[in-house]
Design a protein around this nucleic acid. Structure first.
Lengths: 230, 230
DNA sequence: ACCTGAACACCGTTCAAGT
DNA sequence: ACCTGAACACCGTTCAAGT
């Protein structure tokens, strides 16, 4: 049983990038839990110890993986208006984190921001400044938007509402508790009868609420700094 | 060297509660990463294998730990108005998650909600309903508030802005990138000169924005359903 | 320069054995 | 009933050795 890889493909040289992409593939398949130096090595047809010649160690590999993920998120277009730009950026963030369910936990575990994250932050701040936000107000706006988007994805991924995914078990457990939790029971009843409900739709509702709030604060700020306001 | 514990204290019997509290103590000291069956056993003066008589395994222990954490969060008072109740609940959530920095990652990793989480959700929904929100609007409100609070804590904990904690390294890295990221540079300059800035203050600003937005939606809903509206 | 085998100090968990 | 030692199949990482 000769190894096919030996003669047919010279196996492209290992690079940090190839290691990161392999780690992402393993994570997509087996979760963040399944990413080990040994499993990533196996993905590349190489021993775990070889990886240490291209990444400093597992923590460093995870830093690179987090940066790879941030690079999947589109920046807001530089020329559009701030609201459309942030709206698009929010949906792109949710899409990237939805495509890689291990992403949020990974980002949360990193302590030092990568270049892609800094670049994304810079682009969002630039969009706000171009839209007329003061530096201080842009900082506020950035914070509330970022918190909302990441928080929504986190709560969304916790729900076992993907069909068959465990919703039955949850509903059964909740059935047992319905009398103890009447407000939840009321909600469950309404959402089950009103068939058009999908939790994912809440994203847009809350995003519009936040963007409306930012537009109002921006209008306040402009009114306060206008010459005729005093 | 006789073991003091043998004769002096009979060592209270192990219970699931004692195991969970020991796990929380280990996590507070060594992070979620430091919680192992062996380390929790050591905390209790017992071998790791003994724990299996009280919890089903590590995953089950983590489920119990997550529920213990949710129990630390105060429910909104049942009699106050909705806005004050949700405001207090939001601050209590942030305080609990701030006191146990491992909490958010842990909650994110759990797939089945515990009783404390369900009870908390129920109390928040009840406060909204008592405040006049329709079931559907209460679901929207719950979602956006929850997302904001959890998301803010997550981004807040990622910042290395605790004094000395690594802020120097970050600022140095960013110094290097300032020309590449002019909007970040502008922000950093303003926030450093304006010494009164603290990222933690953003929490209240964003919370008020969300609560204002909810109040406006509630007013809209009431106007739409009022008899004189048609 | 790049890859690797053996080794070390860890994991979660099973199981048979102790009391 | 509760606790435990040994064992198994894993981890991340070091190091000396190979090419």
């Amino acid at each position: 049983m000769a190894e096919q890889q030996q003669q047919r493909r010279p196996a492209p040289a290992l690079t940090p990038e190839r290691v990161v992409v392999a780690a992402a593939a393993v994570a997509d398949r087996a979760g963040l839990h399944g990413v080990s130096m040994r499993s990533v090595g196996r993905e590349l047809g190489v021993e775990a110890m070889s990886l240490y010649h291209h990444v400093a160690g597992k923590e460093s590999l995870l830093d690179l993986l987090a940066d790879w993920l941030m690079a999947q998120i589109d920046p807001p277009p530089a020329d559009g208006d701030w609201r459309a730009g942030l709206h698009a950026r929010a949906h792109s963030s949710r899409a990237a984190l939805g495509a890689h369910p291990w992403g949020l936990s990974l980002l949360e575990s990193r302590r030092t921001p990568g270049l892609s994250l800094l670049a994304g932050h810079d682009a969002v701040l630039a969009a706000l400044r171009a839209g007329g936000f003061s530096v201080r107000l842009a900082a506020h706006a950035f914070s509330v938007l970022d918190a909302y988007v990441y928080g929504f994805v986190g709560t969304e991924q916790q729900l076992p509402f993907e069909p068959g995914d465990g919703a039955d078990a949850m509903i059964q457990e909740m059935d047992e508790s319905l009398t103890r939790f009447p407000a939840l029971a009321e909600l469950a009843a309404e959402l089950v009868t009103g068939k058009d409900y999908a939790y994912g739709d809440e994203f847009e509702w809350g995003l519009e609420l936040v963007l409306d709030g930012l537009a109002a604060r921006l209008a306040d700020e402009r009114a306060a700094s206008a010459p005729d306001s005093r």
